[in-house]
């Protein structure tokens, strides 16, 4: 068992003919992901990495029975690609693209609410079920199969924590990078809900960062609804107010909302211990398993 993706997931790659799209399609396939099609307007009939390309997502789904898509489309066209994927009734859409205008995402988010599709991202590393499938750009070799679920707003921080887990013999059920943009599809609570329902996820690591209030809301969800233990990590404790730390969402506003302290205490108050360092996160997980 795992969350959202496994051996059976049939993937269409939107933007497969671009540099990034092609490279990561090869990487995904090398990892064992079942990539069945590409979709790029005007490129129907071509082939990339041995995979047939269609002009529309609809054609790709029709011909190859795809049930998930990965979006590598440039930012100016990425929202359109998300709409296309959502209107095709896929189970899962993973948007890797960084730099999609926020107002475009607001409209995509509205549409998303009218469908049953899970959207991960945008501006995210993707999702991986170790040993089965990865949809995105995560480096497969650091993951190992096991029972720890992981959800994170940051890509490389995910890799860091996974590396520490794997080093200590703690494999992962599924890892989800939800992305650092102000408006994202799957949020912490959605991911936690999926992990809670997954019998093979025995503990969850949640890596948050400064900015917004998603971590605080997730903490309340953990306290109220979760039996599966959760360990938190919050990046940005030393970030000064008013300065954006890379991610569009990572900013502590002048009025003091979105601080690391508020997130850490919300998690701890709801029974989720928080590690001061990635190693400490793994210590907590070891204690809880």
């Amino acid at each position: 068992m795992s969350v959202l993706v496994d051996d059976d997931t049939r993937v269409v790659v939107q933007g497969i003919t671009g540099g990034e799209g092609k490279f990561h399609t090869e990487q995904m396939m090398e990892y064992g992901t079942n990539v069945v099609a590409g979709a790029v307007p005007g490129k129907g009939g071509e082939e990339v990495a041995g995979v047939p390309v269609y002009d529309t997502v609809d054609q790709a789904v029709e011909a190859e029975d795809a049930d998930a898509s990965v979006v590598f489309v440039p930012p100016a066209f990425a929202a359109d690609a998300c709409f296309e994927a959502l209107d095709t009734d896929l189970d899962l859409v993973v948007a890797i693209t960084e730099g999609i205008p926020t107002q475009d995402m607001s409209k995509v988010y509205k549409r998303l609410g009218e469908t049953d599709t899970h959207l991960i991202g945008p501006n995210c590393p993707g999702i991986i079920t170790p040993g089965e499938a990865k949809l995105g750009i995560l480096p497969g070799n650091i993951f190992s199969s096991g029972n720890v679920g992981l959800v994170s707003r940051s890509g490389t921080l995910t890799y860091q924590v996974v590396d520490n887990l794997t080093d200590r013999g703690l494999g992962q059920s599924t890892a989800i990078g939800i992305g650092g943009d102000p408006i994202i599809g799957t949020d912490f609570i959605d991911a936690l809900e999926l992990f809670e329902e997954d019998p093979d996820t025995h503990a969850v690591v949640m890596c948050g960062e400064i900015g917004g209030e998603d971590e605080e809301e997730a903490a309340r969800y953990i306290g109220e609804y979760m039996d599966t233990p959760v360990v938190g990590f919050i990046a940005g404790r030393t970030a000064p107010p008013g300065k954006r730390m890379g991610h569009a969402g990572a900013i502590v506003s002048g009025s003091g909302t979105g601080t690391a302290e508020s997130k850490i205490s919300a998690l701890e108050d709801n029974g989720a211990p928080v590690g001061d360092t990635p190693e400490e996160v793994v210590d907590h997980i070891e204690d809880l398993l």
């Binding site: 890509g155 490389t156 921080l157 995910t158 990046a235 940005g236 970030a239 890379g246 991610h247 360092t277």
Partner: peptide, 16 residues
């Protein structure tokens, strides 16, 4: 460093 979350974490560890 590379990646906002990891760079922030590195800052936090320096402080730690």
């Amino acid at each position: 460093g590379n990646g906002a979350g990891l760079v922030m974490t590195t800052l936090d560890l320096v402080d730690y």
